[in-house]
Design a protein around this nucleic acid. Structure first.
Lengths: 165, 165
DNA sequence: GGAAATTATTTTATACTTAAAATAATTTCC
DNA sequence: GGAAATTATTTTAAGTATAAAATAATTTCC
């Protein structure tokens, strides 16, 4: 075997793992941000990320959303939304109203208390994210945003079900 | 108010949301990959991502790992590792051996069956990731990898607890 | 050598999450 | 108009995850 062949194999090998390393790094970054946000939401507001995300969806949909719409926007299962909504109803932050047209569906909307709670959390939430991402310059952030956008648009679930927090 | 002031405010506003949009995109990409991997692991191997990740950690640590080491490498709580390990022991994929030196800790290692199961899954796992990330060129992947590395190293939990799957 | 502090892990209570099955209402299409 | 297919949601069973308290062993340090 030539020295060349061995160099080629080594480089192929090193390259072959780039996708895996990239994925692990993507996962690590997301996990770190999630942990930080979750911990802060709990400490400062006694809330959780899934609850905040659901409130956030409703905040930008004043006319309310169906369970199915919530499910696809949050990228979680229907059953998950059922339970999450139940807890938020119990806390008085959202309410469900039956749809007159279609009795299978119901519309979930923020209550006044829910709107207040969300408005109280959202500035901190945004500041925490700014802080977490502050290690990158604005240009780096924009570049990262662009690359992730391309990645997202080329992945299987990228077409339809999309997280829109 | 000058046209300038309004332009500045608009640009500040647009910029102010870049961090948030970047975070949401990061989360969306991770969620899409996770969903896909989870679904495939279940369908092809009747397994799950947390189990695969734990096996993967053990595969690269032939001498085994303590519960605490697993916890910090997987970036999950101690209690979580306790339950996860219990299930894998029940399935015969890992085993725990008491440490003679320190009776508080025990070493978790792959069984022969665990090693076989992991070896059977890992080529597919890697191929799935390659496929998911194939929408980016090698250069784009490398650039994304570099940017995420910088981000990770500048975030709070980035110093110590790190995902090493 | 023994009390106090630390470390490693488990337990507890609860929340989050899924996949698959079940339920219930609507629509399609003869 | 009614059977069959589809759609929207809930229920079920199990796994994943956390934070906080509890347990148990080791280390520190007088």
């Amino acid at each position: 075997m030539s020295a060349n062949a061995s160099a080629v194999r080594r480089s192929v090998n090193a390259d072959a793992k780039l996708e895996l390393k990239l994925w692990l790094r993507l996962l690590a970054c997301t996990t770190i941000v999630e942990r930080d946000l979750r911990s802060r939401l709990r400490q400062r507001f006694g809330s959780t990320l899934p609850r905040f995300d659901l409130l956030s969806q409703l905040d930008r949909a004043p006319e309310g959303l169906s369970m199915g719409e919530l499910s696809s926007r949050l990228m979680v299962s229907n059953g998950n939304v059922t339970g999450l909504t139940e807890r938020l109803v119990r806390e008085g932050l959202v309410k469900r109203t039956a749809s007159p047209a279609d009795r299978r569906t119901s519309r979930v909307t923020l209550t006044a208390a829910g709107k207040r709670a969300f408005d109280a959390m959202t500035p901190d939430h945004e500041a925490w994210i700014d802080e977490l991402l502050s290690g990158l310059s604005r240009d780096e952030q924009a570049l990262l945003h662009r690359l992730l956008g391309k990645l997202k648009s080329t992945m299987p679930a990228g077409q339809n079900g999309t997280v829109r927090l």
